[in-house]
Design a binder for these strands. Structure first.
Length: 336
DNA sequence: AACATGGGCAACCGCCTACGG
DNA sequence: TCCGTAGGCGGTTGCCCATGT
């Protein structure tokens, strides 16, 4: 965070640029940007800044909108399910925060990045040091190896299968374009969380079925505030008092026509989905009610995890490419 | 009560890419 | 083909606040 300030070191002769503000956004600025975006929709961000009467650069407006003002933001603490999915996705994608964020509706890349750096990384590091006293402390970067160190041990076979999958990201023999194609294909098939009350329906994500950014409060109809203005997104989950409603994440599912389908209730006491088991390991010694059944199922759950990835790894490229375009995943790049 | 410390997170920075002229 | 501009993204900074001493 930074104190609001007026940028005075700009050599640009443009008067506007000379008075660009930096630092924290005031409520008035937020109002201006919010009103402009709701009324006019998004155009060129520098135009947004200018037309909204903001003495901010376009980038700053974009960031403020994406990370704070966007009505579909969930905010609040990350649920366990979200946390587990982040860990899982990070193990596959690394620091591709935007890709990870695309699988967690209502979460921003910045938010996830911060969460990872402040919470998960620290936790994994602690567990790493606990599990392997001789482990090196320097240049720590949680990855699959760290997850293994932290208890994600698998049979040799499955480990190898997992390893067989991951080199797709590392192979130096692939051309960059092929590399990107394969990566994007796989990324597009990763599981994503859905809003508990906004399950994908006929029109895709963010359609209006749940308590939304209701017309009674916002003056926009529930067809989606930006859909009409250029297809930004449909209605969103905002709580009754304007608070962001954090719906229970009932399930993780990648909709009907996908091979990859993971269902998991968000209950730390139930079932042995792999998310639950990851959690039981990562949150080892934490205050989670783990029953005996869960303990017994840990190993099996981890196997499930890698079995899941094995399933991904077994898809052939043709099949991947065939289905890529059919995915209804929310792509925030389309709304910016 | 005062001060020190560390965590959380909003915002900025710099680089890269896409795109239009 | 080159160049300028805007958008996108990951890394980093620095302030606020809770907690500890």
């Amino acid at each position: 965070m930074r104190k609001p300030e007026v940028s005075g070191n700009n050599n640009n002769n443009n008067n506007i640029n000379n008075k660009l503000r930096k630092g924290l956004w005031s409520p008035e600025e937020d109002d201006k940007l919010m009103n402009y975006m709701l009324n006019s929709g998004q155009g060129c961000w520098s135009d947004v800044a200018r037309n909204a009467g903001l003495q901010r650069c376009g980038k700053s407006c974009r960031l403020r909108w994406i990370n704070y003002l966007r009505p579909d933001l969930k905010r609040g603490a990350f649920s366990q399910q979200e946390e587990e999915l982040i860990i899982h996705l990070h193990s596959l994608l690394g620091n591709r925060w935007s890709q990870i964020a695309a699988r967690l509706p209502g979460r921003t890349d910045n938010e996830i990045k911060n969460f990872w750096n402040s919470t998960i990384k620290k936790r994994l590091k602690n567990m790493s040091s606990n599990t392997s006293p001789n482990g090196s402390e320097s240049s720590y970067e949680p990855n699959n190896r760290d997850l293994n160190m932290a208890g994600f041990t698998t049979s040799n076979t499955q480990d190898q299968q997992h390893a067989d999958f991951m080199p797709m990201f590392n192979s130096s023999s692939q051309s960059p374009s092929m590399h990107a194609m394969v990566l994007n294909s796989i990324i597009d098939r990763l599981p994503m969380l859905e809003h508990g009350l906004n399950m994908p329906c006929s029109g895709g994500f963010f359609n209006s079925t749940g308590p939304c950014f209701s017309s009674s409060q916002s003056g926009v109809d529930n067809k989606g505030i930006y859909l009409e203005n250029g297809g930004v997104f449909g209605s969103v989950n905002i709580g009754a008092e304007g608070d962001v409603y954090v719906p229970p994440l009932e399930s993780v599912s990648t909709t009907s026509d996908h091979n990859l389908k993971v269902e998991s209730t968000c209950n730390t006491d139930t079932n042995n989905s792999y998310f639950d088991d990851i959690n039981s390991i990562l949150l080892n010694n934490c205050n989670i009610n783990s029953n005996n059944k869960r303990a017994e199922n840990r190993a099996g759950g981890v196997e499930n995890l890698f079995q899941e990835e094995l399933t991904i790894g077994e898809w052939d490229l043709e099949e991947l490419m065939k289905d890529v375009s059919s995915f209804p995943f929310l792509d925030f790049s389309n709304i910016q």
